[in-house]
């Protein structure tokens, strides 16, 4: 049988999905054990026990200096920035994309602007943000907003243009004005697209968050990673990275489930 026609069975599917993770884990454990056997002081590939100790220290015991649980404080600070950034970007991106994609008069001015603005590398203007918005929360949230809003707006604009013109005409023959047409026909059809656009923008949002925290912050997951880097504390960095990955994956999964639950008509394809 040709390779292209071979599909994994039900039980194989799970095993095959787990396989690469298992291989990576085994490779890490073997490498870590070998290095530690060589030199018990090695910090590069900490053992599971060392990492568990670090997590215990960071997440489940009070920091001796501040009396706080640093791991959870960092998580809360980062998630707050990320959440605010994503929420603002979602609203701004949806509004801009909707206007630009639905109303030709707006689109003529907005569309080229969005294209150019989306080409600005957000990290390159991070210093500008720090100068303009100061070093506290606002500049970090703004980096996320500026980084992903144009991407979302352009995606929404594209999706708005893909709505068949027949539907817009039909709605007008049903007595819609421009506003109600947007409210009841265009917007509901774009909301699932917005969730998908957010899902795709999650990766960049995390990137901008960590970058901003690494440069100027006093808490946050990115701040902590870059702080303990000075002590080569891989036993802290690796659990933090795993935690970030888990959070990002959960958000991705949550958005996917939300899309399916909130817009049951969307999955069934277009009529």
């Amino acid at each position: 049988m040709r390779l292209i026609n071979r599909k994994p069975g039900r039980s194989w599917r799970i095993s095959l999905a787990i396989l690469p993770f298992a291989l990576l884990l085994i490779a890490y454990l073997a490498g870590s054990a070998a290095r530690l056997a060589d030199n018990p002081q090695d910090k590069l590939l900490p053992s599971v026990v060392q990492m568990a100790d670090a997590v215990e220290r960071m997440a489940f015991s009070e920091d001796p200096r501040s009396g706080r649980y640093l791991f959870w404080d960092d998580t809360a600070a980062s998630l707050k920035r990320l959440g605010m950034g994503l929420a603002i970007a979602a609203v701004a991106g949806l509004s801009l994309g909707l206007l630009s994609g639905t109303l030709p008069l707006f689109g003529t001015s907005l569309s080229p602007l969005l294209t150019v603005v989306s080409m600005i590398p957000p990290l390159a203007i991070l210093p500008v943000l720090f100068i303009v918005f100061g070093l506290d929360e606002l500049s970090k949230v703004m980096l996320i907003v500026i980084g992903i809003t144009p991407v979302i707006a352009r995606d929404i604009e594209q999706r708005a243009r893909e709505i068949p013109v027949e539907l817009l005409i039909k709605a007008q023959t049903l007595g819609a004005n421009t506003w109600t047409l947007i409210l009841r026909v265009v917007l509901p059809q774009l909301l699932p697209r917005l969730l998908i656009a957010l899902q795709l923008a999650l990766g960049s949002a995390w990137l901008f968050l960590i970058a901003a925290e690494a440069i100027a912050a006093t808490d946050g997951l990115g701040y902590r990673i870059f702080l303990v880097r000075r002590y080569l504390a891989m036993d802290v960095i690796l659990p933090y990275v795993a935690w970030i990955t888990l959070l990002a994956w959960l958000m991705d999964y949550g958005l996917k489930r939300l899309t399916r639950a909130a817009f049951p008509w969307y999955d069934g394809g277009r009529a």
């Binding site: 068949p164 027949e166 539907l167 039909k170 709605a171 049903l174 007595g175 819609a176 004005n177 506003w179 109600t180 409210l183 009841r184 026909v185 509901p188 059809q189 817009f263 008509w265 969307y266 277009r270 009529a271």
Partner: peptide, 27 residues
């Protein structure tokens, strides 16, 4: 093709025509 609105149920697709002209603000 594309004559009916995919995001509304059958009933809402038809009721929409009665709602839109009477509710210019909220639709």
């Amino acid at each position: 093709r594309y004559s009916v609105l995919p995001h509304l149920s059958v009933l809402d697709n038809v009721a929409l025509g009665l709602e839109l002209p009477r509710a210019p603000l909220l639709g």
